[in-house]
Structures are given as C-alpha cells and as structure tokens.
Amino acid sequence: MSEAISLAEAASHRDPEVGLASVAALRQMVEQLEALQVKAAREDGWTWERIADALGVTRQSVHRKYASRRFPGRRLT
C-alpha cells in the first residue's frame, strides 16, 4: 500500500503521478469539448472540410474520428 497523501501535498512536491493524471484529465476533457463543438457544427450544417479547417487538422482525420458509418445520409460532404 502506498502512502496516503493529499492531492495538494502531492502537487506541491511535483509528484509525477499527479502531473500525469492531471494532463490525462485535461486531454480527456479537450476530447469531450472538441466533440461537443463538432456535433454543434454538424447540426448547424457545417461540412467536415470546414470543421477540419477550423480545428487545424485534415478532413480525413476529423471524418475518421467523428463521421458515422451507421448514418449513410451524413456522409462526407
């Protein structure tokens, strides 16, 4: 069993476990925020190309990540 330590203590000692877990939480949150914005943009009629431009990524990567094969009507436009 590792030592019981508060998050504030661990953070103040630059504990890598806190640093890594914090960055992981931030990355997961950014993924959620990006998906929320992509969903809203699609609902507003944005094309995948325009969404990709705004995110600064390729159309293929945004399409691979978010476009559904289950909804043939919502293909790459």
């Binding site: 939480a25 997961q28 993924e31 959620q32 929320l36 990540k65 289950r70 919502r74």
Partner: peptide
C-alpha cells in the same frame, strides 16, 4: 453527445 453519432467513439472524460 454520447448518444449521438459524433460521440459514439468518445471515451469517458471529466
């Protein structure tokens, strides 16, 4: 979001 097509591969987050 998680029920929508855009969120179908999205994993858990804060």
């Amino acid at each position: 979001l998680y029920r929508s097509p855009v969120g179908r591969h999205l994993s858990w987050g804060p």
